[in-house]
Amino acid sequence: MATISALKKKELYIDLRKYASFADIKNGLTEKLTNISTKRGGSQVTIDIGEKKVTTKQIREIEDILLDYGLYLKELRAIGPPALANEEEIEATVFEEMPDYEDTILIRKSLRSGQKILADGNVVILGDINPGAEIVAGGNILVMGCLRGVAHAGVFGDEEAIIAAYRLIPTQIRIASHITRPPDGETIVVKTPELARIRAGKVIIEKLKI
């Protein structure tokens, strides 16, 4: 069995050295995490998988699993990709330079095709963003109506920025330097408010929990 031991308060150590394949490592990790008390939420986790090579993508997958349990990856002990340390450094500097988005503007109308709103801070729209309309914000974007057009949050590079909408049916979603669009040929009808944000390097859409 893999072992979990508490290093410090709010820090966890998970030993996954015995698993050979990455699939097994993920399964082992999930199994361990289901047994962890929810009080551990928010903890930093150190994972040891021994003398195995991992790619950046695999690290992100592990981060993703941890996030599902409200945990953060502190360190992955493995033979990591050489760029990893560097990448973390870059991200750290970007975050430090992030200005605080205290300015929030309120727009009390719908944006029609061809209309564009630019804002340094957060934007709240009491209306729809129609196809062909665009909203670009340094901070977060909240649409109280239907988002059918293009929304770009965190335009100065803030990967923590989110886009939330009462109905999220966008042409395209952009957060910081990430661009995503709905899959071709599929129309998913969701009748609840949704939220777009970056998790483990990808833009994901999730149900907005209130």
Binding site: L111, R112, S113, G114, Q115, N130, P131, G132
Partner: peptide
């Protein structure tokens, strides 16, 4: 409909 939306925006 897209063009109509644009026109309505310009009219407004």
């Amino acid at each position: 409909v897209r063009d109509a939306d644009r026109i309505i925006g310009l009219l407004e």
